[in-house]
Structures are given as C-alpha cells and as structure tokens.
Design a protein around this nucleic acid. Structure first.
Length: 306
DNA sequence: TTGTGTTTTATTGCCTCC
DNA sequence: GGAGGCAATAAAACACAA
C-alpha cells in the first residue's frame, strides 16, 4: 500500500501502528492520487530538476495518458539529487549541521525538494560525518598510542641496560673490597683509577661528577638542614635525598651534567682540595644512589648485603 | 553484459525533550 | 503526546572488474 506522509513523500507502509506511522497515514484531499503528488516535487519553487529522468520525461507534453498511467501505477523509485542540489546542501551543512524548521522549509523551496527530503538528507549526512569523525578520532588515538608505546619500549630497554650493568658490576665484584676501594680512592683523592682495576666508565664518572657538583653546591647552601641525608663527614648529599638516576638519564639535564663533570675535573686539579673520607657503609649508599636513586636499604634486591 | 560491492535515498522503530 | 534525532536497515542507483 502506498501512502503519503504530511510532507508529501511516498512511503511503503508495512502496517505499523506507531505514532509516527499513524501520522503518516493522514491524507489530505490532494494526496489521494499518491504518486501524482510526487509529480509536484519538481515544480516546488520552480526549480528545474535537470538530470532527473522522472521529471524530465513528464515535463514533456507529448507523453500520452498510457505513460502517465504506467507511471502512476508503478512503485516510486528513488531519485538521486543533482550535483547542484548536493553542493547547495553541503554548503548549508557546513554552516550548521542541524536543521531548524524554518531553514528546512527555505532549503526545500530553494531546491525544489520536499522538506522531508531535506531532513532525510541532513540526517544521513550527519551519520556519514559521525562515521568519518570516528575514523579520524581513532587514527589520532592510534598515533598517540604508538608514540607512548615507543617511549615505553625505550624505557624498558634503558631499564634492561641498567639492570645488565648492575649485574655485570656485581659479577665483577663491584661490592667487593677492590671496587669499593677503587671508588673510594677516586672519590676521596681524585686520583686516576688503577690500571689493573676495571675502569670507571664515562657514565659512572659522570654520575660521580654530578654527585660531587651537587654536593659542593648543597654544602654551601644547605649545610644547616639536619633533615637531609648526610654523609659521615656531615656534608649534605642531594644525591641520596632525591635520587640521581632520574637526573642522570634525563636528556634535558645533559648540559648540567657536562658542566658538573667539567667542574669536578677542575676541582680535582686544585692542589689544596681536601676530599672527605667515606666509610664502607656510605660507599654502599653512594653506589646504590648512583644506580637507583635511593639508599641501599630500600632496594628490592640488595646484592651488597650478600 | 553481468555479477558484485559501494553509495545514496528513504523508512522504521525507539528514544529524549518539551 | 508530538516533534525531532539516531541507529539499523532496505532498496535503488551507481561503479567497476571480468
């Protein structure tokens, strides 16, 4: 059964009794011809529907009644909008993708379409826009995820490298007397390492330099702070306080690290420089702070204690 | 020409808001 | 309860390879 809704568009009714469907079953006096109302679509507003086979055919007088009857009896076909109509609707959609009743009527008049067709077009257009939006949102999120994953993987690699280094140092008896004595010697006297001992790597040296540099600065400004971690000689140690590891691996601090190292080298060359002595326990603390940023007592695996 | 996949137009049913 | 929006879906129109 073919029926017309209030706006004149045809619909095939399956017998639904929903409120909306009930409304669509209301006929006016002119709608009893069904598809004939459709014929009036092209005349609304006087817009020529070029490219529309239906209307271009029936615009011509020479078509006889048999064609009209055939047309009126056939079920309505969908007709695509013209390029001009679509462009017009697209521009309107860009201005506002919502359709106020007045705007709908105006567009319908200008394009020679039924208001219902305008509403349907906007509805479908919003659906397409939403799908596209979901696509772009997904791509953005995916890119962010990939960036974060790369960062995370790099951190894992860095972490593995540090763990391997710790293991290697442990295997080389870093916690043993030779290494500790070596480090203590380096720290307290500023002497070069023994040739038969494993050389302190540049990285380790840099950490020691950072520590030394910060120690020097802190000693000047915070020597009265009794709550801060202290070395045995009473010199404040920001290294033990805040954890040097994060600063050491932070690329943003590379300049300060380099400066610290240069300062230490200059300082070590001073003939009258007096270095504090550290005992065995503080040597442990120093080593643990270099690699973990907190005292050795807090480590999950305290390999120096074995 | 035809089969098939995609796009567009339109309908249906449900929901929310006033 | 009516109006309008949305998701799901139908079906016609279209594109295109074989």
């Amino acid at each position: 059964m073919k029926v017309l809704d209030m706006e004149g568009s045809a619909a095939v009714c399956g017998g639904s009794d929903s409120p909306k469907q009930t409304q669509k079953l209301k006929f006016n006096a002119e709608s009893s011809l069904g598809s004939k109302t459709m014929l009036s679509f092209g005349a609304v507003g006087g817009v020529k529907r070029s490219g529309n086979m239906f209307f271009s055919a029936f615009d011509q007088e020479e078509f006889g009644d048999e064609y009209l009857d055939e047309y009126l009896n056939q079920q309505e076909k969908k007709r695509r909008l013209t390029v001009d109509q679509i462009q017009f609707l697209e521009r309107s959609f860009e201005e506002d993708n919502r359709l106020e009743p007045d705007r709908k009527t105006q567009l319908a008049n200008e394009l020679g379409l039924q208001p219902r067709q305008i509403a349907v077009w906007f509805q479908n257009r919003r659906a397409r826009w939403k799908g596209k939006q979901l696509e772009t949102d997904y791509e953005t999120l995916h890119e962010n995820y990939e960036t974060l994953k790369t960062d995370y993987d790099n951190l894992l690699k860095e972490n593995d490298k540090l763990k391997a280094e710790v293991l290697r140092l442990k295997q080389n008896n870093l916690g043993g007397d030779a290494k500790k004595a070596n480090l203590q010697s380096y720290y307290s006297k500023g002497l070069p390492l023994e040739a038969n001992a494993r050389s302190i790597s540049e990285d380790e040296e840099s950490k020691v330099s950072t520590f030394k540099n910060e120690e020097q600065n802190s000693a000047k400004s915070e020597v009265t702070n009794l709550d801060s971690p202290m070395l045995s000689d009473g010199v404040h140690s920001p290294l033990l306080e805040s954890g040097v590891t994060s600063r050491v691996v932070d690329p943003n601090n590379s300049d300060s690290l380099q400066n610290g190292e240069d300062n230490l080298h200059e300082e070590l060359l001073q003939p009258d420089r007096v270095f504090p002595m550290i005992d065995d326990a503080h040597c442990h603390q120093l080593l643990s702070s270099l690699y973990y940023g907190f005292p050795v007592e807090d480590h999950a695996f305290n390999f120096w204690s074995h």
